[in-house]
């Protein structure tokens, strides 16, 4: 039948033309087109995954910042507390030291005063003694200026010695 009998001419031309077009398109159209499409798909894919990663990184950074802030607050509080403690301690220590020092100075002053007092008393005693001796000497000298009185005394003394 006419309709289902392939014509040799058309078979020949179809084969030649189709293969030529296949080779040309394969080289200059399909390959660049498919490469461009797959490259674009890859770039879109990578851009999306990069955006996702950036989002995650952002979230991570934010939470890290919060954590850091919290930590910093705690640390600050602790530092402040420590500082207060230190201050109190230093003040207390200073107070104690001042008290001790004051007490020591008082003690020393008292000792000094005592010493000075003792020295002064000793001095006064010496002076009183020498004065008393001088006075006694002077009185004795006055009393024993004339011979009679001396003799009277000696005689008196001797009388007492005899009684013993």
């Amino acid at each position: 039948m006419e309709l289902v009998t392939p014509a040799i001419g058309l078979v020949f031309w179809a084969t030649v033309c189709f293969l030529i077009v296949l080779v040309i398109l394969g080289k200059f159209a399909w390959k660049p087109i498919l490469n461009a499409i797959s490259e674009r798909e890859k770039s879109i894919e990578s851009a999306l995954s990069m955006a996702e990663a950036a989002k995650e990184e952002m979230a991570r950074l934010t939470s890290e910042n919060d954590e850091l802030l919290k930590q910093a607050r705690i640390e600050r509080d602790q530092i402040l507390k420590e500082a207060k403690q230190m201050k109190d301690m230093i003040v207390n220590e200073a107070k104690d030291a001042a008290q001790v020092e004051g007490a020591r100075m008082l003690e020393r002053a008292r000792l000094e005063i005592d010493n000075q007092k003792a020295i002064a008393m000793a001095d006064v005693k010496n002076q009183v003694a020498s004065l008393s001796l001088e006075i006694a000497e002077k009185i004795l000298r006055k009393q024993f200026e004339d011979q009679k009185k001396q003799d009277a005394l000696v005689a008196d003394l001797l009388r007492e010695v005899k009684l013993k």
Binding site: L25, A29, W30, P32, I33, A36, E39, R40
Partner: peptide
């Protein structure tokens, strides 16, 4: 398709 390929080359990505 050659012109389509050319426009892919001209505007990559």
């Amino acid at each position: 398709f050659l012109s389509v390929a050319a426009s892919y080359r001209k505007r990559p990505g």
